[in-house]
């Protein structure tokens, strides 16, 4: 097996992995610094401004959460614990952070997965249709769709969908996270802006690729427009779209803050909103770590998919000029790329 790996792959993998680990550590460190620089006191927030606790009682609580130790000690201890999978306890609920994260994560993964899938289908369709359309007017109209999708505020879209499909037609529940039905409206809400990003990137890349000489050559050889799109243009257009998909995973996490609140679903977004609002330091750190790990994993996955779409990324230096553009033959083994 090893012998069949492309020569540049192991080196490429190691480099990507090191980068991922660095990103995760940096996220943890910067968050810790920011949280400790903030002037407010998580313990004071927990008990509220109207409660009267004696200084001794407050000190006891701060000691319990380790908030009375020097910042550097807190940071080092937390980093050490985090390496062993212990992220401490939520100040607000007293529950281990890791328990809370594992409870909430599946809800958000389901939401993000459904919305990304839906977004990719919708965005891909718009991009494909725009590239396929032969009428310039239709194409312009289709290329304007992403701007429309991205301009709709998620909060408002969620409320409108709910008004229509929950309160008027009663097709889907308006709140909660149990069952498939409860996933539909939140996923659609989050899918609309995702679709916009995908349609925007893929659409313009496809159209650009269709203007390249190799597309003309293929057409001249008698290939249909759809075949050139699928067989030749898509392969070249898909790289920037993959990068965009990686970024969109991060966007799903931030979008879930709004969508999970509007649709009253449990998940990472809800946890984040509450943890930031109450300055639940261990919780915020856990969430940042989770987000960093997710993004690093997705980026790694995207990096690993790149060589499949375009083997040239494994070559450190662009080789001979004639290989800069993949020939029609090189692109041929990906006929179902638009699936």
């Amino acid at each position: 097996m090893t012998a069949r790996l492309p020569p540049g792959l192991p080196r490429y993998l190691v480099r990507r992995l090191c980068q991922a680990v660095f990103v995760i550590w940096a996220a943890f460190t910067v968050t810790s610094l920011l949280l400790y620089l903030l002037p407010s006191d998580p313990v004071q927030i927990m008990i509220g401004p109207q409660a009267h606790a004696s200084p001794g009682q407050l000190a006891r609580l701060r000691h319990e959460y380790g908030l009375d130790r020097p910042v550097v000690t807190q940071y080092v201890t937390q980093l050490g614990r985090a390496l062993h999978g212990d992220l401490g306890q939520s100040i607000q609920s007293g529950v281990p952070v890791i328990t809370e994260l594992f409870r909430a994560l599946p809800h958000t993964l389901a939401l993000a997965g459904a919305s990304l899938g839906l977004g990719a289908m919708l965005g891909g369709s718009v991009a494909w249709s725009a590239a396929y359309a032969s009428s310039p007017r239709l194409r312009a109209a289709l290329l304007a769709v992403p701007s429309l999708f991205i301009s709709v505020p998620t909060f408002w879209l969620g409320l409108m969908l709910m008004e229509l499909f929950s309160f008027t037609f009663r097709a889907f529940p308006a709140s909660g996270g149990t069952g498939f039905a409860s996933l539909v409206l939140p996923a659609v809400t989050l899918a609309i802006p995702s679709a916009a990003f995908i349609a925007q990137t893929l659409g313009s890349e496809l159209i650009k690729a269709m203007g390249e000489p190799y597309a003309d050559t293929a057409r001249a050889k008698g290939a249909s427009r759809s075949r050139v799109l699928r067989g030749h243009a898509l392969r070249n257009a898909v790289m920037p779209t993959l990068t965009m998909l990686g970024l969109l995973v991060g966007w799903q996490l931030s979008g879930s803050v709004v969508v999970e609140t509007v649709f009253a679903r449990d998940g990472i977004g809800r946890l984040t909103e509450a943890a930031v609002r109450t300055q639940d330091i261990p919780m915020v750190q856990g969430l940042v770590l989770l987000a960093a790990v997710c993004l690093a994993l997705v980026n790694l996955a995207v990096d690993l998919v790149y060589p499949l779409a375009d083997p040239r990324v494994l070559v450190r230096r662009p080789a001979v000029r004639s290989r800069q553009r993949p020939s029609a033959r090189a692109a041929a083994p990906a006929p179902g790329g638009g699936r």
Partner: peptide, 16 residues
Amino acid sequence: IVPTAQVRHGNLVSGR
């Protein structure tokens, strides 16, 4: 738990 006031109101009026 329904944090958005408009959603709570919609739930109540629609009988949810």
